[in-house]
Design a protein around this nucleic acid. Structure first.
Length: 289
DNA sequence: GAGCCATGGAGAA
DNA sequence: TCTCCCTGGCTCC
């Protein structure tokens, strides 16, 4: 679930549910007790995502909540049905499982589970953390040149660079595989061999795909001509639901050329690609700036 | 119902 | 490179 689009969507959902309201915080699981106590009873000001990080600000509290969902974390935002909900109303808002942080207001509540990180950061700590991240395609303040400068001089594979949050913030394993396919790029090509025009195209495509992901809350990457209806094929059905070209389609025929999709574990993560649409690159001359 | 695996990343070794 | 986090959707029985 959590690539960058998920966190940006959650920021929007949290704002819609809580911004401007007095909130109550608790940690039923017990691992965020001190932090929850610090913000308890405060007005929620704003939630904001940067890459896969989510920050939540409260009035009158210098620190912000920093959340990282990791691989298995989730943040469920609910609205109280009219007349049934209320702060502390455990009948309407039961605690199920290990709830790290519960945020409540008169009209909504949210439960955080399984997150890698849930902590309070001072403004200085937050600034230092964000400064370590690469540009986020979903943010208006993103500077794609910063990522290009890292990629352009790197001997690391483009597949690994796209997943490096210090190079690019918010891209995960699905967008990585799909963007490489859509641009017919060899995942194992070193970053320094990527051409500037290719990077510009990749960045622009990520901006569009990820914005779509925020809007629809899922990852869809296939072009209209490769959608199930257009090809007369069954729609994909699995836990993320979106239509994709190669991600988790090992041994299945490529939607474009029918060559079986390949997979390989690279740096501990599964990489998927089409060996025909994304052939081994023959580039040998470094491309500069 | 049990077991497996996953869109991530920190920290240990 | 391995372990942990300890959720949740899927497959298999």
């Amino acid at each position: 679930m959590p690539e960058g689009h998920t966190l940006h969507r959650l920021a929007l959902d949290l704002d819609a549910a809580f911004a401007g309201d007095t909130t109550w915080s608790s940690s039923p699981q017990g691992r965020f007790v001190d932090g929850a106590a610090r913000i308890n009873g405060r007005l929620m000001e704003k939630a904001e995502a940067y890459g896969k990080q989510l920050f939540v600000a409260f009035a009158g509290v210098e620190e912000q909540v920093r959340i990282h969902l990791g691989l298995i974390g989730g943040l469920a935002v609910h609205e109280s049905p009219p007349g049934t909900g209320g702060v502390g109303d455990l009948g309407a808002r039961p605690v199920v499982g290990q709830v790290r942080w519960r945020l409540e207001s008169a009209r909504s509540w949210a439960d955080l589970r399984g997150a890698t990180v849930c902590t309070l950061l001072t403004p200085e700590e937050q600034a230092a953390y964000v400064a370590r991240l690469g540009p986020d395609p979903l943010r208006d303040d993103a500077d794609p040149d910063r990522a290009w400068r890292r990629i352009n001089r790197s001997r690391v594979s483009i597949a690994a660079l796209l997943m490096d949050q210090a190079v690019l913030a918010g891209v995960g394993n699905v967008y990585r595989a799909e963007i490489l396919f859509r641009h017919q790029l060899d995942p194992f090509m070193e970053g320094r061999f990527l051409r500037r025009a290719e990077w510009d195209a990749v960045w622009g495509d990520l901006v569009g795909l990820m914005a779509y992901g925020v809007l629809h809350n899922r990852i869809d990457t296939v072009r209209p001509e490769h959608e199930p209806e257009a090809m007369g094929r069954p729609a994909r059905k699995d836990d993320h639901g979106g239509e994709v070209y190669v991600y988790r389609r090992t041994h299945q025929p490529c939607l474009v050329c029918e060559t079986p999709v390949r997979t390989e574990v690279v740096a501990g993560r599964n990489l998927f690609w089409c060996p025909r649409c994304q052939p081994r690159s023959r580039r040998r001359t470094p491309v500069r700036g």
